[in-house]
Design a protein around this nucleic acid. Structure first.
Lengths: 199, 199
DNA sequence: TCAGATTGCGCAATCG
DNA sequence: TCGATTGCGCAATCTG
């Protein structure tokens, strides 16, 4: 059921020793043919692409537009996770490749916090459950946000129409008054009323 | 950005998300009931809740609001879907109930699509892969839609401010004209003499 | 009945 | 370290 992608050992190592992708991963994931589409995505570190996707509205649009037309095409097999039991293909092979010999050496000890991460462990289940709760919470939040935005757009549109109508009324009234004024000579010579025409 | 363009875009958007006006009202804060909140969700059939969630924006808001406080808590076991192999509880029993005798009768043959559904089968993998593609496509679409909605809301807000300013200008101009007219007798006072203020 | 489209969910990676 | 986000796959369901 669970599609574990990267072997847990490597996962531990990866999360424990975050290596700047741009420095250690001269990825160049062989942008040949079928894998090039994902390769583009990989050229951006997660933080970079995430920043584009989240904060920068325009940026998000740009990146999205680039991916939009192709992102739902089947992933290249090399980018897909292999079977749950089979050997895992790393998403960022370059990073791990360089150091896995060392980190997988017998002298290397995983940090204490990572030791108990086994799919069978209670620790793992606890973490998973906590994350699942966080995910549900986050998605609820997102749904509410989207809904509020939609409602706000609708309200703004309605208000917009009302304002347009109001402008039409005011304009017409203004025209009427201007017409009346144009028909009424300035006169006022009676008491020297200086009806200054300010308009 | 011209009004018409924004409006048309909004119209298009609104038509794809028809939200009854009354549902836009602020959601009622969910009557306090600890267990009733999830239960209420269950009382809605999938199609009903789906209709609310899709078409009725406000409805989704209501339902979501009710669940919001609890939805990210761990699901009760009874709320989880049964195992893939286990007997499925129909979400819309009313519909199928009426006909299940027929469809489950010996003379009824399970459709070909159901026969070959094994996780090992190529048919299964084919379907999964197609669905994965569809999912990616659908989510891309949703992302774009959300982005467009956000952008439209911003545009409408800006346009609204401009309209407000315009209304202020027109109102002031109107007041000025009215003032002028009030100061100016109804013309021809020389021979008419009846200078009645018409405004 | 069928195939694509949606949607809720869990997992893993990553962010903050 | 831990909750919050996000992309993804799965399964159930909807839709035309």
């Amino acid at each position: 059921m669970s599609d574990s992608r990267v072997s847990s050992v490597i996962q531990e190592w990866a999360s424990s020793y975050p290596v700047p992708a741009q420095t250690l991963a001269p990825p160049t994931p062989a942008p040949s043919g079928s894998t090039s589409q994902l390769a583009q995505m990989d050229l951006l570190s997660y933080s970079q692409s995430a920043a584009l996707l989240r904060g920068g509205g325009g940026g998000e649009d740009r990146v999205s537009e680039q991916m939009m037309g192709l992102s739902y095409l089947p992933y290249a097999a090399s980018c897909l996770s292999s079977g749950p039991g089979g050997p895992q293909t790393l998403t960022r092979p370059c990073v791990f490749f360089c150091f896995q010999d060392f980190f997988l050496s017998p002298t290397f000890r995983a940090p204490a916090t990572k030791r108990s991460i086994t799919k069978d462990s209670a620790e793992y289940r606890l973490r998973r459950e906590r994350n699942n709760i966080a995910v549900r919470k986050s998605r609820d939040k997102a749904r509410r946000r989207i809904l509020l935005t939609q409602q706000r757009a609708l309200q703004l549109q309605e208000e917009n129409q009302k304002l347009q109508i109001r402008i039409g009324q005011l304009t017409q009234e203004l025209d009427t008054l201007k017409h009346i004024l144009s028909q009424r000579p300035l006169q006022g010579p009676v008491e020297g009323g200086s009806a200054g025409s300010s308009i």
